[in-house]
Each structure stands twice: as C-alpha cells, then as structure tokens.
Amino acid sequence: MTAAILQASGGFGTFLVPLALMFGIMYLMVILPQQRQRKKTQAMLTALKTGDKVITGSGIYGTISGLDGDSVIMKISSEPQVKIRIARAAIAQVETSQDAK
C-alpha cells in the first residue's frame, strides 16, 4: 500500500519538475527580454526633446518641434507650417547622426 502511494507522489513530482523548468526557460527567453525592451522604449520616449529627429512607427520622418504631455508636435517638411500632432507612443526611434546621413 505504501509503495503505491510513494510511486504516485513520485509521478506527480516528476510532472512538476519539467513543468517548472519549462516555465523558467520561457521566462528567461521570452518574458525577460520583452521587459528589457519595454523599459528601453519607455526611457527613449521620456527622453524626447525639441529638435530630436525621429521616425514614427508608420515610417514618417520628422523633427520634434514641441512636446505636449502624451502627444508630440512634429515638423515633417522644410516649410515651417507643415506640422502634425502624433501620440508620443507612435514614435518608433530617435534618429542618430549616422541614420540622418
């Protein structure tokens, strides 16, 4: 009787160990990199300032001419009156000097 109980509990333990191992690997390979990328993107969005050259998620290139809370006023042409207001979260990246060339 006790051998059957020990064998049954060993079967449950052998089920939990691989499951925990799979969760640990999934955390290290998927969740942790996503959290790092999200923090990096959030830091980039909070560091935006007037004059930064940016690219939106839809591929629009422009220069930030003003910041207004959660939105950004972006100049998209050499003409001074051609400006658009976009959500700050729509900015995909800030151009570096190498990207601008």
Rank of each mutant, 00 (worst) to 15 (best):
Ala3Trp: 11
Ala3Asp: 13
Ala3Gly: 08
Ala4Glu: 15
Gln7Asp: 15
Gln7His: 09
Ala8Tyr: 13
Ser9Pro: 00
Gly11His: 06
Phe12Arg: 15
Phe12Pro: 01
Phe12Glu: 14
Phe12Cys: 08
Phe15Gly: 14
Val17His: 09
Pro18Arg: 06
Leu19Asn: 06
Ala20Ile: 12
Ala20Cys: 10
Ala20Arg: 06
Leu21Lys: 09
Met22Lys: 11
Phe23Asp: 11
Phe23Arg: 14
Ile25Met: 10
Met26Lys: 09
Met26Gly: 08
Met26Glu: 10
Met26Arg: 09
Tyr27Arg: 13
Tyr27Ser: 13
Met29Pro: 04
Met29Leu: 14
Ile31Gly: 00
Ile31Trp: 10
Leu32Trp: 10
Pro33Trp: 08
Gln35Asp: 10
Gln35Cys: 05
Arg36Glu: 14
Arg38Thr: 09
Arg38Val: 07
Met44Val: 02
Leu45Thr: 00
Leu45Glu: 03
Leu45Gly: 01
Ala47Gln: 13
Ala47Leu: 11
Lys49Asn: 05
Lys49Phe: 03
Gly51Ala: 06
Gly51Lys: 04
Asp52Leu: 03
Val54Ser: 04
Val54Gly: 04
Ile60Ser: 02
Tyr61Val: 05
Gly62Ile: 01
Gly62Met: 04
Thr63His: 00
Ile64Asn: 05
Ile64Leu: 06
Ser65Ala: 11
Ser65Ile: 07
Ser65Arg: 08
Gly69His: 06
Asp70Arg: 08
Asp70Gly: 07
Ser71Pro: 01
Ser71Asp: 06
Val72Glu: 02
Ile73Pro: 03
Ile73Asn: 08
Ser77Thr: 03
Ser77His: 09
Pro80Arg: 07
Gln81Thr: 01
Gln81Ala: 06
Lys83Tyr: 01
Lys83Asn: 13
Ile84His: 02
Ile84Lys: 05
Arg85Lys: 15
Ala87Trp: 05
Ala87Met: 12
Ala89Val: 07
Ile91Pro: 04
Gln93Tyr: 10
Ser97Asn: 12
Gln98Glu: 13
Gln98Gly: 03
Asp99Met: 11
Asp99Pro: 06
Ala100Arg: 10
Ala100Met: 12
Lys101Gly: 15
Lys101Leu: 13
